[in-house]
Amino acid sequence: MADPVFVALAVVTIGSAVAALELRSLVYGSIALMGALGGIAGLFLLLDATFVALFQLAVYVGSIAVLILFTVMLVKRELIFKKIEDKRRKFAGVALMLVTMVALGAIFIDSGIKDITTDEPPVDFREIGSDFVTYYWPALILMGLILAGSVTGALVLARREDIEENGQRTS
């Protein structure tokens, strides 16, 4: 018998993920997305990874979902989405998803991950942090450069040249 908390979290996560895809209202869809991300944070909590769980809440629910919500509210959806009601596409999508999930699940179960048992305590996040700045520092620097590059690129893309600076921005 599985842990009831785990089952509840899994149901919440998968249910709100399906709702995020299927709901007609975009705002409710993004709320459901928040539910799915929050459910994943709960799964991390169950795995004794409090650090990851709290960052999942702070970054994904607190920032990414807010950005999605913001975009949904600022953009008129008629302009970006054409409604195509197609039953065959829908069933094909569901079937494709099922096939992928079953295949992935079979690979996971076959890999012997179910037989691993360990009594070791969870890895402290301080160790992960010190590993990052000592042994894995090139990866850290690379990640930082990629993020900085994408932020700079976004700034360049978002710059509008059709607005004239007429001296109002004195701040």
Partner: peptide, 18 residues
């Protein structure tokens, strides 16, 4: 991880507001 928890909680206020 109290401080991280504080950041996680603060992140909910803008969602509720909007």
């Amino acid at each position: 991880l109290g401080l991280i928890a504080v950041f996680a909680v603060i992140g909910f206020f803008p969602i509720i507001t909007i």
